[in-house]
């Protein structure tokens, strides 16, 4: 399978995603410069973390106007798998590929560290190798991860199983303390209606090798490979 990692000016997790896809998961991978308009030949697209355009104005607000984003729309339209991680999630929200928006963390600080995340929907192309309700550990590192959407949107996301990841404590409880940024209903990741566009704040690429303190993220990439093969 061939993955594309989009490089916006200011992306800084592009090389990390590339490394995991290529060296850990063993798939083909190529960087896609943000000025490119061509995603032909790719089976999956990763919008990586970082500070695209310095996150000036709002996280992701300027990146969504990069030429590549038109191709990302079309790629998603055709059913291609798209995952936005951290800044990539913010870009997907700004681009309208996923509903809602990001606010600055309620603690007003950049937060880096490990969090517990519950896999709320293990029946997606991105999570099929996790157990339903499984609690995994993943790193976060962001300043704007406070997910917001109107109540109706949130209800709809919940009802349709589109909340894929949720911040929880060790016991799986979505408590206030377990929420690192104030996100509505402890939401850490959501998927689109069709099930081919996922946005998440935690970084699966940072926990795909044991030497980095955890391997829970690897199954996300493996799930994508499995979904693409089937």
């Amino acid at each position: 399978m061939k993955f594309g990692v989009v490089v916006f000016p200011g992306s800084n997790c592009d090389a990390d995603c590339y490394h995991v896809v290529r060296n850990v998961v063993g798939q083909e991978c190529e960087y896609v410069w943000h000025e490119s308009k061509d995603l032909r030949g790719f089976d999956a697209v990763i919008l990586p973390g970082g500070f695209s355009y310095g996150d000036y104005l709002r996280s992701g607000a300027l990146a969504r106007f990069s030429p590549i984003m038109q191709s990302v729309y079309e790629f998603a339209e055709k059913g291609g798998l798209v995952i936005g991680i951290c800044n990539g999630f913010q870009i997907l929200l700004e681009a309208g590929l996923l509903p809602g928006a990001m606010l600055p963390n309620d603690n007003l600080e950049f937060r880096c560290g490990w969090v517990n995340v519950k896999v709320e929907n293990a029946d997606t192309a991105f999570t099929r190798l996790y157990r339903p309700g499984e609690i995994v550990r993943m790193p976060i590192a962001h300043h704007e991860g406070n997910y917001y959407a109107e109540k109706e949107t949130l209800d709809e996301l919940e009802r349709s199983g589109r909340v894929v990841f949720r911040y929880v404590d060790e016991n799986g409880c979505p408590s206030r303390e377990a929420n690192p940024n104030g996100a509505a209903r402890n939401i850490a990741g959501i998927i689109n209606e069709r099930g081919n566009v996922l946005g998440m704040m935690p970084h699966p690429e940072r926990c795909s090798e044991a030497i980095l303190g955890g391997e829970d993220g690897r199954r996300l990439f493996l799930s994508m490979v499995r979904a693409l093969c089937s």
Binding site: N12, C13, A15, D16, H19, V20, G49, E109, F110, R111, C112, G113, P139, A141, H203, E205, R206, E209, I211, L212
Partner: peptide, 27 residues
């Protein structure tokens, strides 16, 4: 931790031992 949780200490996926120890280990 109140200091270093504000720093991204994991980007580049090479941080084997990060802040909070006497020394940092980078693969």
């Amino acid at each position: 931790e109140p200091v270093y949780r504000q720093y991204d200490y994991m980007v580049r996926t090479d941080t084997v031992e990060g802040p909070g120890r006497g020394a940092a280990v980078i693969r």
